[in-house]
Deep mutational scan, measured.
Amino acid sequence: FDIYVVTADYLPLGAEQDAITLREGQYVEVLDAAHPLRWLVRTKPTKSSPSRQGWVSPAYLDRRL
């Protein structure tokens, strides 16, 4: 999967189903980028939180090589 970094805090609107909150600087794996406005991502697990999966706007993501 492609690795992206979150460029700004992402707080989903209440109406968005299956969306997750992301923090600036967080790394995520993009699982599904087929839709231009919503990408399915999975967060990297940390010592304090397990990995999470949900939909985010790709405008908040920047690809890492």
Rank of each mutant, 00 (worst) to 15 (best):
L61I: 04
Q53A: 08
D18F: 08
I20Y: 05
S49I: 10
P12Q: 05
G54I: 09
V28Y: 01
R63L: 15
A15Y: 13
L37C: 12
V5Y: 13
W55A: 02
L13H: 13
R52D: 07
R23S: 09
R42E: 04
V28S: 00
A8S: 11
H35W: 06
V28E: 00
R42K: 08
T46L: 06
Y27H: 09
T21W: 14
Q53P: 03
I20K: 02
Y4D: 00
T21R: 11
L40P: 00
S48Q: 11
P36E: 10
R42F: 02
F1E: 07
R42M: 05
H35M: 06
T46W: 06
A34F: 09
R23P: 03
T7P: 01
P50T: 07
S51D: 03
R23Q: 10
Q26H: 04
S48I: 10
R52H: 09
L11F: 15
Q26F: 03
R63H: 12
G14D: 15
S49G: 09
K44N: 07
D2I: 10
P58E: 02
Y10G: 04
Q53C: 12
D32F: 07
S49K: 09
R64A: 15
S51F: 06
D18P: 06
L65Y: 13
V5F: 10
R38L: 10
V30Y: 01
G14R: 10
R63S: 09
Q26A: 06
L40R: 03
P45C: 10
P12H: 06
R42Q: 07
P45N: 07
V30W: 01
G25A: 02
T43Y: 05
E16L: 08
S48L: 11
W55K: 02
R38C: 14
D9K: 05
R42C: 05
I3G: 04
L40F: 08
P45G: 13
A19L: 07
Y4S: 02
K47Q: 13
G54C: 05
S57L: 04
W39H: 01
E24Y: 11
Q17T: 14
L37T: 11
A8W: 05
E29G: 02
P12G: 07
Y4N: 01
F1I: 08
P50Y: 04
Y27A: 06
W39C: 05
Q53Y: 11
L40M: 05
P50S: 07
L61D: 01
K44V: 15
S57M: 04
I20S: 02
Y27R: 07
S57W: 03
R63Y: 13
K44H: 12
R42S: 04
T46R: 05
E29R: 06
L13D: 15
Q26K: 02
I3W: 15
P58K: 03
K47L: 13
E24K: 15
A59I: 12
P12S: 07
P58M: 03
I3K: 04
V56R: 00
A19M: 09
E16P: 08
V6M: 03
G54S: 03
Y27N: 04
D18L: 06
S48D: 15
W39Q: 00
L13F: 11
A33W: 09
H35T: 09
Y27C: 11
Y4E: 00
W39P: 00
L22I: 04
P50Q: 07
P12D: 06
A15T: 15
V30N: 00
I3M: 08
A34M: 10
L40W: 09
A59P: 02
Q17W: 13
D9C: 06
R64H: 15
Y10A: 04
S49W: 09
T7A: 06
K47G: 13
D32W: 10
K44P: 10
Y10H: 07
L22S: 00
L13G: 13
Y10D: 02
K44S: 10
G54V: 10
L37D: 15
H35L: 07
D18Q: 07
I20M: 08
A15W: 14
A15F: 13
T43D: 02
R52Y: 12
V6P: 00
D9A: 06
L37G: 13
S49T: 12
S48G: 14
A8G: 07
A8H: 12
I3H: 05
L22V: 05
A59E: 13
D18G: 14
K47F: 11
A19T: 09
T43W: 07
Q26E: 15
Y10K: 03
Y10V: 10
E29M: 10
Y10F: 10
A19Y: 12
R52P: 02
R52S: 10
V5Q: 07
L22W: 03
A8Y: 07
I20W: 06
L11C: 14
L31C: 03
A34Y: 08
L37M: 10
T21F: 13
V41K: 00
P36M: 05
V30T: 01
P58Q: 03
S48Y: 12
L11Y: 15
R63E: 08
Y60C: 06
Q53S: 10
R42L: 04
V5M: 09
P45W: 06
L22H: 01
K44T: 12
L37K: 09
G14Y: 11
D18N: 10
G14F: 12
S51L: 06
A34H: 13
A15S: 15
V6E: 00
R42V: 04
L31V: 07
L40N: 02
D18K: 05
A8E: 09
R23M: 11
Y27T: 08
P58H: 03
A59V: 11
T21A: 13
H35A: 06
Y10P: 02
D32L: 07
F1W: 11
L40G: 00
L11D: 12
V56S: 01
V6T: 04
E29S: 05
V5L: 09
D18Y: 07
